[in-house]
Design a protein around this nucleic acid. Structure first.
Lengths: 223, 223
DNA sequence: CGTGATCTTGAGGGAATTCAATGTCGGTGG
DNA sequence: CCACCGACATTGAATTCCCTCAAGATCACG
């Protein structure tokens, strides 16, 4: 049972750099407007009508649910290029917040769906985006059944895979965010990172900057 | 870290009764053949080409993945009317096995996809089925972050919701299957059921027959 | 009625949580 | 410039929940 995250206050922070865009979502690129969001600003809430879908242009976003008793589960982290908030039903199933200051491409859902009814390529793209989310969720499930070390190692490898070529990861999110993503407490995440550092699997030049020193060891941990 | 399930042997068992079919998957009803599967028979394996998609006619099915070290995670249980094995990519992301003797409608994936390219209604149906799986996976994630009592209570409520109107649930799957679905050990599942029985939330007239005596208590546990 | 599979129960140990204190970093104002 | 403050992160000690290992109990089936 992990601690509930306290109410967050808004304060500025330099936005992360933009990143070039993969194939998914390409055809809807011209159908929306780019909107700025402040750090910790709500983008949409659980059970709100899903009027728009979203693509991160710069910055980072988290989606989450909160249980009755205050436990928060983060559904995913979204980085530049990622699409989130896409629903088949009429309501959002998660809430979404900006982790850092960010710019987000906002696209009217109804117009995409209308387009999909005429253009099977768009329809297939919508389907593929949802399947992509499904893949994420299934990988997330596989993470959640593992030990703390395995979860953290898996998380780091996942984040590193977003920056192919580099062994250095700049984490936009707090330890609390990581903990709520991995189903652990903030203390366990912190302790586990320290262990990984001591076993020379990673280096921690700063609390949100992580260098993968031994990917083989991390992968072995990853199960 | 839960125990690995031993190799299972095949032996027959009376099939569960058929159930009337909801909207999803209705239009593909006539495109396939119904096939029989023996108890514990493999329907498809992880990473195999996804040549078909499947709908349960009678009986019950589990999908699962196995990690390096033998831990098994069950992705979902599928009962009459449920569609499984639908992929956007060309490979299955899980393995699937018959839990009981069952009959399964098998439909050629390529023909459905071809049809979807011409008929936007079919395309939308494919999308909706994938979104339905996504919903399942997200609910599963929310289960996996809870305590053992909450997971078991949630599981029972989920199963009961498949039999609306009745408070009696006939479980087709073993304790090991339940444990591997909930990320617990078989012993913890068993103990938790005993606790729920002692607290009068459920009754256990037989090990695979469960009566919900106090849904309010179970829902409270469910978080 | 014996046999194997499945399920339950018990005792002990270990991993992660809880509670609590300390450390670090960036920003702000004296 | 440095002292202070709040947010965030790390570390320590004690506890709790679930797992592991082990032994019985129950059930289906030959």
């Amino acid at each position: 049972m992990q601690t509930q995250t306290a109410i967050r206050r808004v304060s500025p922070q330099p936005p992360a750099g933009d990143v070039m865009q993969p194939a998914i979502g390409a055809s809807v690129e011209l159908m929306g407007a780019t909107m700025p969001y402040a750090r910790n600003a709500e983008i949409f809430g659980e059970n709100e009508p899903a009027e728009y879908l979203y693509r991160v242009v710069s910055g980072a976003v988290r989606t989450y649910k909160v249980l009755n008793d205050g436990r928060r589960q983060i559904g995913g982290f979204y980085l530049p290029g990622d699409v989130f908030g896409l629903e088949v039903g009429d309501e959002h199933s998660f809430s979404a917040e900006a982790i850092t200051e960010c710019r987000i491409l906002v696209i009217k859902r109804s117009s995409v769906i209308t387009l999909a009814a005429r253009d099977s390529g768009v329809a297939r793209e919508l389907w593929a985006m949802t399947a992509n989310e499904l893949q994420r969720a299934q990988d997330h499930i596989m993470l959640l059944i593992k030990t703390a070390q395995e979860r953290v190692a898996g998380f780091l490898l996942e984040m590193a895979s977003r920056n192919p070529g580099s062994n250095e990861v700049e984490l936009p999110m707090s330890r609390q965010d990581i903990a709520d993503y991995l189903g652990l407490t903030i203390e366990t995440v912190s302790r586990t990172l320290t262990q990984l550092e001591q076993s020379a699997a990673i280096a921690l030049p700063a609390s949100r900057r992580i260098v993968l020193r031994n990917r083989v060891a991390l992968s072995r941990l990853n199960g």
